[in-house]
């Protein structure tokens, strides 16, 4: 049985954006704080800390989840993707570029979480319907009220993906 006391300093090793990283956590440290303060990856934002706002959403083993509702010590050995893993050496990926083109962000606080959810949505289904996009978006709050731009950005990729599929079938 694993047991970590309240004052223990626990070594946590996990894979973040395909790189093995190690940090130290107390038993009560949230994964969101571990990612930001121990690993120094501050792209993951912390909003409400009770799972409502979605700003801290990351992917664990390929699934989007709230990093504020998980303990760092639970992430030992797990595979994590954060927003830092999306761009290629500073070049925005397609989704990030679409967000930029469609003004899908104003202050940007909610953006990293939304990008992680939408990345998963498009991975699982390259051509989601508008309802499927807004259903996933309902798991995020944007206080700049930028939802229209966000939906347009994702829709633009859906149109590209449909065109691509048609091209391949032609």
């Amino acid at each position: 049985m694993i047991e970590y006391g309240a004052a223990d300093r626990v070594k946590v090793t996990l894979t973040v954006n395909n790189e093995s990283l190690t940090g130290y956590a107390s038993s009560r440290m949230l994964l969101s704080d571990f990612i930001r303060h121990e690993l120094g990856l501050t792209g993951t934002h912390v909003g409400c800390e009770h799972g409502v706002c979605g700003a801290c959403t990351i992917q664990i083993d390929g699934r989007p989840v709230r990093s504020c509702l998980m303990l760092a010590v639970q992430a030992e050995g797990r595979e994590i993707q954060t927003v830092e893993g999306l761009s290629d050496k500073g070049t925005l990926n397609r989704l990030q570029q679409a967000f930029r083109s469609h003004h899908a962000l104003q202050c940007g606080f909610c953006t990293s979480g939304i990008l992680m959810s939408m990345t998963n949505l498009l991975n699982e289904n390259p051509t989601p319907t508008d309802d499927e996009i807004t259903d996933i978006l309902s798991g995020h709050l944007c206080r700049c009220t930028g939802y229209v731009g966000i939906v347009k950005a994702v829709q633009s990729l859906v149109l590209e993906n449909i065109a691509r599929e048609n091209g391949e079938n032609a």
């Binding site: 694993i2 047991e3 970590y4 006391g5 309240a6 038993s27 009560r28 949230l30 704080d33 800390e49």
Partner: peptide, 17 residues
């Protein structure tokens, strides 16, 4: 906010739980 301190246990089986 952050949780108050606690001891974290991850038992190996239901009996230990």
């Amino acid at each position: 906010m952050k949780p108050a301190p606690f001891t974290y246990c991850r038992p190996d089986n239901v009996e230990q739980v």
